[in-house]
């Protein structure tokens, strides 16, 4: 199996694991008699496959025989991975705290709204980090183009998917799709479309 198809398979595996865990968690969380500790676990576990992206991405940029970038050109990747790591860490932290607070206290709608926005803030940070990554002056210009095109393609596909599901909900009573899952859908697609974008320049 080539390095590229191995990478593709692993990314697809992570996305599949995430969606499966998320689905299982949603079933668990829906149960009213679930103890608080278990619901906390149900919230955290689905985000764990996301962490698998780190070793994968670092290994990919380091050993990728196709791109083989110099240390200077790899630095933007490292900076991005560090920012992504910080984002994911704070996301999980804020999510845990929010879930705990929501379960333990009878909060007002205002406080709940603030918690909701706080939980989403690290996601905003990650999106900012992606923007910084493609604007990094040290990034290989061809890689920048591949990543920019992949980001646009995955954004478009995510919006397309959202439109399809939205109409399915309206017209055909499809189950409610939690909007925040669009974020991992987007990240998964971003990983999956890259080999195809690359193929266009061979």
């Amino acid at each position: 199996m080539s390095a590229k198809s191995l990478y593709f398979t692993r990314i697809a595996g992570l996305v599949f694991a995430f969606l499966l865990l998320e689905w299982l968690a949603s079933k668990m969380i829906a149960r009213a008699d679930l103890p608080f500790g278990l619901s906390l676990v149900a919230y955290i576990v689905p985000t764990l496959p996301v962490l698998g992206i780190f070793p994968l991405a670092i290994n990919y940029t380091k050993n990728n025989p196709v791109t083989k970038l110099s240390a200077r050109r790899r630095a933007p990747v490292r900076r991005y991975m560090v920012r992504l790591g910080m984002g994911l860490f704070f996301y999980i932290l804020v999510l845990m705290v929010s879930v705990a607070a929501l379960n333990r206290f009878d909060l007002s709608t205002q406080v709940k709204s603030i918690l909701a926005v706080l939980t989403a803030l690290p996601i905003g940070w990650i999106i900012w980090a992606m923007g910084r990554f493609i604007a990094d002056p040290d990034i290989d210009e061809f890689e920048r183009m591949i990543i920019t095109r992949s980001l646009l393609l995955s954004t478009g596909l995510t919006l397309f998917f959202a439109a399809i599901w939205g109409f399915l909900e309206n017209f055909a009573q499809a189950p409610d799709f939690p909007l925040y899952i669009l974020v991992p859908v987007f990240f998964g697609l971003f990983g999956m479309v890259q080999p195809f974008v690359r193929r266009g320049y061979k």
């Binding site: 025989p65 196709v66 791109t67 083989k68 970038l69 110099s70 200077r72 050109r73 290989d140 210009e141 061809f142 890689e143 183009m145 690359r198 266009g200 320049y201 061979k202």
Partner: peptide, 23 residues
Amino acid sequence: LAEHLDVSRQSVNAIETGKYDPS
């Protein structure tokens, strides 16, 4: 050549085949 130019090997290939115009 990629090493001399400090770009990826893939960049050199894409430029050579005329599929990517360098900055």
